[in-house]
C-alpha cells in the first residue's frame, strides 16, 4: 500500500513520500500519515502592542500575546523574519508551550488577544487552531498576520475561531508572486474573499518595494479590487520597504512613492489608508465624514482615542472595526 500523502493545507499541495518533509519545512510524512513538527514549539514568543501587527481598527492600545514557529509556505526575497521563516525546526531554539499554556500566559499577562504572526501561521495550523479554540473558551480574542496562502477548507474551519486577520497582499501581479515570493496571487485573493465572507475583521498590508511592485497603475487596480470585493471599509497599510535579506540591492521606498500609493488608494475609494515604517500623520485614523482626528498614533503607541463605543465622538458616524472586547 502506498505511503505517499498529499498535504491540502496550502495551495502548494506538496506530495510527500515516506519521511519526506514539505516545502514549509515543518510537516513530515511518517509512515503514510502527515505530522506537524512544530506543534507546541514556538521559536518566538512576545507581548506586542496590537498596532505592531498592524491592526489599527482592532482593540487599539491593547497588547497581543504573539507567537510563531519556524517555517513558511512562501520564500519572499524581502522577508523581514527570514532567520526563522526559512529555518528548519532543529535550527532554532524553541520553547515548549502547549496551547493551554499560551492562553494561560496571555491571560496572566493581561493580553486581550493572541496573535499568530512573525512567520506564516498557516504552517503551524494545528497549533494555532487548538490554541484558538481554547482562547475562545476563555474570552481571549484570536488574530493572525498571514500571507493568505491557504486553501479554502482549512481557512473556513479556522475562521470559526479567528476574530481578525491582517493579510499581506504583497503585489497585484502573478509575476511578482512567482518571481519574488515563490507563490501565486489568485489563492491570496480567494483567501481574502473567504475571510470577508466568514465575518473575520480584515486589514490589508502592502509592502511597497521600489521597481518591483510600485507601479501606481497596479496599486490603483489592487485598491479597486479591494473596494469591489472586500468593501471600502477595509483598512490598508502601505509599508515602507528597507533593503533586507535577498533584496539588499534596492533602496528604501521614496517618500513620494508612499504618498502616491496612499493617494491612489484614497482615489479608489478606500476610507482608511495608513502608511507604516514612517512617522507621519498617515498613522492616524480620521473620521471619514467630519475628517476630525479619531486616533492619534506615534509608532505603536496611541496618544488619543476619540472613538466612543464604535462611533466618532464628534459626529457619531460609525467607524468600522472592533473597538471593544
Amino acid at each position: 500500500m502506498s505511503k505517499t500523502v498529499q498535504c491540502e493545507l496550502c495551495p502548494t499541495e506538496c506530495v510527500l513520500e515516506d519521511y519526506q518533509i514539505g516545502g514549509c519545512k515543518v510537516r513530515i510524512n511518517k509512515g503514510g500519515a502527515l505530522y506537524s513538527l512544530v506543534y507546541g514549539k514556538p521559536c518566538s514568543v512576545a507581548i506586542d502592542p496590537i498596532e505592531k501587527k498592524p491592526f489599527f481598527h482592532f482593540l487599539p492600545a491593547t497588547t497581543a500575546f504573539s507567537i510563531a514557529t519556524v517555517g513558511c509556505v512562501l520564500g519572499c526575497k524581502f522577508c523581514q523574519n527570514w532567520q526563522i521563516s526559512q529555518a528548519k525546526p532543529e535550527e532554532s531554539d524553541n520553547y515548549n508551550l502547549p496551547p493551554a499554556d499560551v492562553v494561560r500566559q496571555a491571560i496572566f499577562n493581561g493580553c486581550k488577544t493572541i496573535t499568530y504572526t512573525y512567520t506564516e501561521p498557516t504552517v503551524f495550523y494545528e497549533y494555532m487552531y487548538d490554541t484558538a479554540v481554547i482562547a475562545r473558551q476563555h474570552g481571549v480574542k484570536n488574530t493572525m498576520h498571514t500571507c493568505g496562502y491557504i486553501n479554502e477548507r482549512p481557512l473556513r474551519e479556522l475562521s470559526k475561531y479567528m476574530d481578525a486577520a491582517d493579510v499581506d497582499l504583497k503585489a497585484f501581479t502573478e509575476d511578482f508572486y512567482g518571481r519574488v515570493c515563490g507563490g501565486r496571487l489568485k489563492p491570496v485573493l480567494d483567501a481574502l474573499v473567504v475571510l470577508k465572507d466568514e465575518g473575520v475583521w480584515l486589514e490589508v498590508t502592502n509592502l511597497v518595494i521600489p521597481t518591483l511592485n510600485d507601479d501606481m497603475k497596479k496599486i490603483s487596480e489592487m485598491c479597486g479590487w479591494i473596494v469591489a470585493n472586500l468593501g471600502p471599509d477595509v483598512p490598508i497599510h502601505f509599508s515602507r520597504f528597507f533593503p533586507y535579506y535577498k533584496l539588499n540591492n534596492l533602496p528604501p521606498t521614496p517618500m513620494e512613492t508612499m504618498a502616491d500609493a496612499r493617494k491612489a488608494a484614497m482615489d479608489a475609494g478606500l476610507k482608511f489608508v495608513y502608511m507604516g515604517n514612517i512617522r507621519s500623520e498617515a498613522e492616524n485614523t480620521y473620521c471619514p465624514k467630519c475628517r476630525k482626528l479619531l486616533i492619534e498614533r506615534i509608532g505603536y503607541s496611541v496618544r488619543q482615542n476619540n472613538i466612543m463605543g464604535s462611533a466618532c465622538k464628534f459626529c457619531n458616524t460609525r467607524i468600522p472595526g472592533v473597538w471593544e472586547g
Binding site: Q6, S36, N151
Partner: peptide
C-alpha cells in the same frame, strides 16, 4: 509530533 489536519493519502 502532532498528526496534521488537511491531508490525504494518494492512490499512486
Amino acid at each position: 509530533p502532532r498528526k496534521a489536519m488537511f491531508w490525504r493519502k494518494t492512490d499512486a
